[in-house]
Design a binder for these strands. Structure first.
Lengths: 139, 139
DNA sequence: CTAGGTGCTGGAGCGCACTCCAGGTCAAGC
DNA sequence: GCTTGACCTGGAGTGCGCTCCAGCACCTAG
């Protein structure tokens, strides 16, 4: 499979695929006689997994770390497991936060819906505790 | 409340607060005799809400749009409701995606956990259908 | 033989959301 | 009167994740 078809099948642009290769997210691709990238279909499952990681908000540099471990073979299995386990916790925490945000949105939307009378625009903003009003600055 | 205290209480940096004001996320602040920003505590609830929007992945330009409507008063209530309703749907969809990703992560983590024998590194990547293998390119 | 399509490389450019900085004002304390 | 510290402005710089481009190499069809 050449890069054009891979792009079509993954929804990534050719530029993005080459970029991912440059930074080490994708393994250096085999080349055909004309020095063009020639992919094995198995790359599709790897890209699908990368897409999952990206959807969950993992920064590219962490994906690169994971990819590097993977490229080193089985001896890194434990490290990869730990990495994913940690990431899972981060994602779960974010999902929980999102649920709280959905509640807030629902409250506000309900306010707008029941607003044929006055009563809405006097800042029904948000009031509940929320995760730490004082928190970390400049990460 | 001056900007330093507001920064402490919100976890935003003073620079970020001034940046938010410049782009219209925060209303132009009142000034004291020394031309320093002097905030009413009610700004805290607005910032808390902005933080929710940000957590849910709303791009700043959309928050600015919302803020602009809000600044125009009650006549824009319907528009704001529509905006939030649309955003709610987007967030819900993302949460659903995240749940699917968590499942994938769990599967992979389980694979790593049960990997005291061989059997892990032969690409147990991901295989399930997932949302559209062929999809939109360059958004 | 030529034109069009696909792919190649290296490097520049972009949009986002801040973050940092120089050079200045002002008020309070010593 | 001088220093210190908080805050001011306008503008430049940063890191991320792509995206675009010039200039070139191949291959295939007509």
């Amino acid at each position: 499979m050449k890069i054009g078809e891979l792009a079509r099948r993954t929804g990534l642009s050719m530029d993005t695929i080459r970029y991912y290769e440059r930074i080490g997210l994708l393994p250096r691709a085999d080349r055909n006689a004309a020095r063009q990238r020639d992919y094995d279909p198995s790359i599709l499952t790897w890209i699908a997994f990368l897409r999952r990681l990206k959807t969950t908000g993992m920064p590219i540099r962490d994906m690169v770390r994971y990819a590097a471990l993977r490229a080193q073979g089985e001896e890194t299995a434990a490290a990869r497991g730990a990495l994913l386990t940690h990431h899972r916790a981060v994602v779960q925490a974010h999902v929980d936060e999102l649920h709280a945000c959905l509640d807030v949105l629902d409250t506000k939307i309900a306010g707008y819906a029941g607003a044929n009378r006055e009563d809405v625009n006097h800042d029904p903003d948000d009031q509940r505790p929320g995760p730490a009003p004082d928190a970390e600055r400049r990460q």
